[in-house]
Amino acid sequence: MPDPSAALLIEGVCKRFGSLQALDHVSFEVRQGEFFGLLGPNGAGKTTLISLMAGLSRPDAGRIQVMGHDVVADYRNARSKLGVVPQELVFDPFFTVRETLRIQSGYFGLRRNDDWIDEILHHLDLTPKADANMRALSGGMKRRVLVAQALVHRPPVIVLDEPTAGVDVELRQGLWAFVRQLNRQGHTIVLTTHYLEEAESLCGRIAMLKQGRMLALERTADLLSRPVQHTLRIRLSSGAALPADVLPVARATSDGRVAFVLDSADEVAACLAHLHASGVGLDEVELVRPDLEDVFIAMMQESAQ
């Protein structure tokens, strides 16, 4: 049964562009206050799904609700509850940053919104650029304005479509601190990103899409505990050489170490025992915990088989 109080309800959504089935019966819910990740390779359907949520596109089948409001039948209420940071770096070259935010506020029916605009500008380090024309801003600054535009109407649900693509580390950290704060204040956050470490550290639950279908929908912690391959990295002692029987499964790394990709943590002990028995001296041993990227790659590969 769908949860009527869900921040976002996606039910049996299909979308086709010509011969391409961009979304194929996608269903999931995002609870209010969640920090939710939507992951998938290029062409998985993430941006199409966001376009459907935002009313930029219309589903062929299924329904989408934002805070209980249908995005087609009750689009005015649905759109007023949603803030979207688009993936493309778009801006209107005629206006300053402040004009852009005032205009965006007006589109959402807000006339006197300068206090909140000032607060957003402050949090996104845009205050010194408030009266600068959009054309004069760097790419990173323009990205911040996009985030600010999505927040002018204080939407309970915020969708960030690749918000940190092409931006520097400093902005990324500042942006995530601000978004975390918004999430703590009760805003529901839906994030798509290619930086999987960001999704891993921020998102409580993650949905994985591939070729328009849902591959997984789990808590991030559960995804990370999936049995996937582990990587054992070693540094050989001076003059030591690997025995011939392990050469086919060993891989030299760029920092002069040797890596073994093992199917489970149990194989680590056996591998080290075999090297020890072969008289191979080791200076350094490191077991790399699988991260979201490993899980992601493993799932994508599994689905391809």
Partner: peptide
């Protein structure tokens, strides 16, 4: 201009009829 530069999205996302 809004279509080519993509900023038309700012008018399509809000609840403007």
């Amino acid at each position: 201009q809004s279509k080519v530069t993509g900023n038309i999205v700012f008018m399509l996302l809000p609840p403007i009829s």
